[in-house]
């Protein structure tokens, strides 16, 4: 009887445990876009992203958002021009949504399907690889999203009639905190 009680209690508790929500909160982030022009290279950096993840029944939904105008490339004129070409006045926030199995938090590499809403367009990026390192309740994630201007119907900015390259990869470095 004594041996059976803990097992029965565990079995009864399992559904409750499975339904418990786990939350992830983005505590630090560095997002860097890279633009290549025949004459020069530009990096625009933002630390203003906010994010949250909610896990239910073994599946985690994440939402990450960053204001377009928070990206700084070291030149106000260029940043405002980027804001204009990416229609940041009308669509001021970039959002990224993804769902991952809760079990993925144990892997060194995760592959996520990303739904990115930017410049009034939505693009899907399948199986984007991210490296993750977990220390305690903190998980650091790094990776590069292979975004392009055409994915979001953005006219490439040009200098001296030479347009920038279509590829604008975004380097992602994020630290997530797990909360129960």
């Amino acid at each position: 009887m004594n041996k059976k009680f803990p097992i029965a209690a565990l079995l009864l508790a399992l559904p409750t445990l499975a339904q418990t929500d786990t939350q992830w909160v983005l505590s630090q982030s560095t997002l860097t876009y890279h633009i290549t022009h025949p004459l020069h290279q530009v990096d625009g950096v933002s630390h203003a992203a906010r994010g949250k993840g909610v896990c239910r029944s073994g599946e985690c939904d994440f939402l990450i958002a960053v204001p377009v105008k928070s990206f700084e490339s070291g030149d106000t004129n260029r940043d405002l021009h980027m804001l204009q070409v990416t229609r940041g006045g009308e669509f001021p926030i970039v959002t990224v949504r993804t769902s991952l199995p809760e079990a993925a938090s144990g892997s060194a590499t995760i592959h996520a399907d990303l739904e990115i809403h930017f410049a009034g367009q939505t693009a899907l990026y399948k199986q984007v690889a991210f490296q993750q390192v977990t220390q305690g309740s903190e998980t650091k994630i790094t990776g590069t999203i292979p975004t392009t201007l055409t994915d979001f119907k953005i006219d490439p900015p040009s200098l001296l009639t030479m347009p920038v390259k279509n590829e604008i990869p975004i380097r992602v470095e994020m630290t997530w905190q797990k909360q129960k």
């Binding site: 958002a65 204009q84 006045g89 009308e90 669509f91 001021p92 926030i93």
Partner: peptide, 12 residues
């Protein structure tokens, strides 16, 4: 901060 406007874009 999340709601843009056509007027803001027109200014840009």
């Amino acid at each position: 901060q999340t709601q843009g406007s056509a007027a803001d874009q027109a200014r840009l």
